[in-house]
Design a protein around this nucleic acid. Structure first.
Lengths: 263, 263
DNA sequence: CGCACTCTTGAAGTATGTCAACTCCGGTGG
DNA sequence: CCACCGGAGTTGACATACTTCAAGAGTGCG
């Protein structure tokens, strides 16, 4: 065991040989750990994490109501989270890609408030929350990092609120596609060509539209040459114009300039 | 100084004489401090808080873009927060009452992401964030409490998202009124009779409706005897039915029951 | 007292929802 | 391998809830 620790430490020191644990994880810069941890701190973090929780497509990571004891870092795969209201109706509250953290909404009352479902076979790191807090007390940088992640989650939701209450279908879809594009891009994948992991109905639920509207709007984008869709395969032909559409909502409601040109 | 500390401590021990500081604050159970702090911990918290920051009606507590260094606990008064998108459009992202915490969306990138504007003369406690983190490292209960508050903020926003993407105007307004009612109730005010602090336009922006729709819907509620409105003065005559309306959205989309009765 | 802002109400327009029919696709079993 | 099946997606016609535009009344602050 002691030997293993030494080996791990060596890997950290020589980062060219990442083989296992957090040191090996190429996602750690995305969110998981703050920069500038020293070797010892690194090991402490590494030790509380249960690696390799595997969830197959369509399986649940947790259900709403489940007792909360850990947050989860998504290593590979793709998730959606569903808020289910009292009487069983479900609403997609988010899509989650590798490098993102799930379960933070559950801290406030010690039980999960949504369902997390894998949209493809996935692998996660389970981080027991009380131990994360404990370690945060020892490692200020870790504590602050976690606060930033939670804050970003708040911010992210606020942007979604703006989208939902101020944008029309075109703008919502465009914003959604641009967002996906950026997230894929940040992970080293193509930012202009990727698979949609979710159904039209999921997208609609997330964006506050009906699936027919999503389908129609995608078709419209395709006709105008903005994108090419074939089932779930997507190519963004004109990312810049998509961005313009996504942000036009803001122009539209300016105090009092001349009217913006028709679309 | 030392003498003052002793005096304060005495006040804590004998809670019947709350005169100043956190010990005196009748809001502390709403969010500010976890239960079960001992006297010493209490004092430590008390010491980092700058009390009595006063903001007059229509003044800003902070602007989007301002550097972040503190969160604020609202002691008395009423705030709205506005997200301003790139090009100057503004969207009401929340209303905040005594006992709530402002500024948590700013942690993630060290600058405020929204504007906070007082809707009436207000008084706040300023809590320097680095010191709050520092104290969180010493006092586990405080740390955990803060995490819960942030998590609740995430959860709150998720509910808003559900409202915005799944509910019609009646349901949104009803949910909004019920929410205000509960928050006033929790603070010891009447849960059925209160002043709206914000304009119809603010409500509309928050709920993703136009101000005319807000006005019309309020009128409709009034005609049907649900509420009585006169300008900003509001009486909820039938809180139960308002709750039913707010939650009917959930029934409406159930898998396959018989259609719900017309409104 | 008056001006600006807020609110109310009406009439007409439109984006999105609803309902329905059909096609496409992937998986399963014969 | 093909046939079949159910879920997913597309498209059209129609319905409607909300917005937009507009006019006017009410309110409150300087």
């Amino acid at each position: 065991m002691q030997q293993k620790v030494h080996q791990l430490f060596a890997e950290i020191v020589d980062a060219r040989y990442p083989r296992s644990g957090c040191a090996a994880c190429d996602l750690r810069d995305l969110w998981c750990l703050p920069k500038g941890l020293n070797g010892d701190e690194f090991l402490q973090v590494d030790r509380i994490i249960n690696r390799r929780k595997r969830i197959k497509r369509n399986e649940y990571l947790y259900h709403a109501g489940n007792p909360f004891h850990a947050v989860y870092a998504l290593r590979t795969g793709f998730f959606k989270t569903l808020i289910s209201s009292a009487s069983g109706m479900e609403h997609v509250s988010g899509f989650h890609m590798a490098g993102e953290l799930l379960g933070m909404d559950a801290i406030c009352d010690d039980r999960h408030s949504c369902n997390a479902i894998a949209l493809e076979d996935s692998e996660l790191c389970e981080i027991p929350f009380s131990e994360l807090e404990m370690l945060g007390r020892k490692i200020p940088a870790l504590q602050h990092h976690f606060h930033k992640i939670m804050s970003r989650e708040i911010f992210r939701n606020q942007l979604l609120v703006v989208l939902l209450s101020g944008m029309n279908a075109d703008e919502r879809l465009a914003a959604f596609l641009v967002n996906l594009s950026q997230r894929y891009g940040a992970r080293g994948y193509s930012a202009t060509q990727f698979q949609l992991r979710m159904t039209r109905s999921d997208i609609g639920s997330y964006l506050g539209l009906k699936l027919e509207t999503v389908s129609r709007t995608l078709s419209k984008f395709q006709e105008s040459g903005l994108i090419s869709v074939h089932n779930k395969q997507l190519v963004l032909n004109d990312l810049e114009r998509l961005k313009q559409i996504a942000e036009r909502a803001q122009q539209a409601l300016r105090p009092d300039p001349q009217k913006f040109e028709a679309s």
